[in-house]
Design a protein around this nucleic acid. Structure first.
Lengths: 149, 149
DNA sequence: TTCAGTATCGAGAAGCATTCGCATTAATAT
DNA sequence: ATATTAATGCGAATGCTTCTCGATACTGAA
C-alpha cells in the first residue's frame, strides 16, 4: 500500500512538472498497475480498474498508458500476438521468457547476452540503441527416476 | 530465374502432397517473394504482384502468405510496428538488426547467442522452443582522425 | 472559496491490418 | 471433357488502438 502510494505521489510530481494533471482515473490506473504482478493488456487493466470505478472508459486507459509510458512510469511490450501489454517500470533492464502453454511471462536478465548483442551490432557497424528479446519455451519436467525422454 | 523456378516447382510438389492447388496467384506471389531481397509486408507484396496481375486481390495475398508459411516456404516477422513482414525461408536460422533511421533490416546469426539463450531458458526450468531477437541500432560513423565523441 | 482556463474524460466514430462469408472461377483427377 | 471442390475477388466484419467533440473537473490565482 505504502509503496503504491509512493509511486502515485512520484508520478503526480512528474505530471505537474510537465503541466499535466493528476486525475482520479490516472490515480486508479496507476494503482492497478502498481499492484499487478503480471503483464496485463489494456482490456485487462480496464477490467480491473472498472471494478473500482464503473464510469471509467477504455479510451482513458489507452490515453493514460501513453502518458504513463512517456513519463517512464511503465513499459509497454508487444509479444507474439501483437497486443500491447504493460508493466510498471523497473529500474533494471530485463527480457522475457513466455511459457508457450500457459502464456505466463517470466522476467530475466543476462549481462552476458547484453554484451554479446552490443558486440554483434558493433561488428555490423552499428551502435546498439535497444533490443527486443523474447524466449518462448515449455516447462521442463523435473528429471526424476523412471521419467522417459 | 532458374532458382526462382526451382522454388516454385518445389512448392508445387509440397502443395500437391497436401491436397492443395498451385494457382496463378500463388505462383505469382511466390515469384515476387523469391525475387525480393527485403522484408516486404502484405501490402508491399500485393503492390508488386498487382503490377503483373491487376485482378489480384489483397485477400489472396494474406491467404497465400498463410499457406506459404504453413508449408515452411516463408517466414513471417512482426517488428516494432506490429505489421507482419515476410521473407522466403532460409535454411539457416537468423535474427535481425533494424536500422533505426532507415528502417533497413540486416540479418545476422550468432551461435553464441543461441547457446546462451538455451542455457538461460534451462536455468529457468524451460526448454527453449523458439525466440525472437531484434536489435535496433544506428549506423556508426567509421572512426577517423579528428572525429569527436 | 470562487472562478477562469484548459487538460482530461466518456462515448462513439474512425483507422488499420487482417480475417471472413459467399457466390463465382478455375485447378485437378477421372 | 466434366465433375469436384479448392481458391479467388470483393465487400463486410473483426479486434486493437486512436481520434473527435461536447461535457467535466483539475489547478492556480484572486
Amino acid at each position: 500500500m505504502t509503496e503504491t502510494d509512493r509511486r502515485v505521489a512520484v508520478f503526480e510530481t512528474q505530471l505537474k512538472g510537465a503541466g499535466l494533471r493528476m486525475t482520479q482515473q490516472r490515480r486508479l490506473i496507476l494503482r492497478v498497475l502498481a499492484e499487478a504482478d503480471d503483464h496485463p493488456d489494456a482490456k485487462g487493466i480496464f477490467t480491473r480498474a472498472f471494478a473500482h470505478d464503473p464510469t471509467l472508459s477504455l479510451s482513458t486507459v489507452y490515453r493514460t498508458m501513453k502518458v504513463l509510458e512517456s513519463q517512464g512510469a511503465i513499459e509497454r511490450h508487444a509479444f507474439e500476438d501483437g497486443i500491447s501489454r504493460y508493466e510498471h517500470a523497473h529500474q533494471e533492464h530485463h527480457d522475457h521468457l513466455i511459457d508457450i502453454d500457459s502464456g505466463e511471462v517470466i522476467e530475466f536478465s543476462s549481462d552476458a547476452i547484453e554484451e554479446l548483442q552490443r558486440r554483434i551490432a558493433a561488428e555490423l557497424g552499428y551502435e546498439l540503441v535497444r533490443h527486443r528479446l523474447e524466449l518462448y519455451g515449455r516447462k521442463k519436467q523435473p528429471a526424476r527416476k523412471g521419467s522417459r525422454k
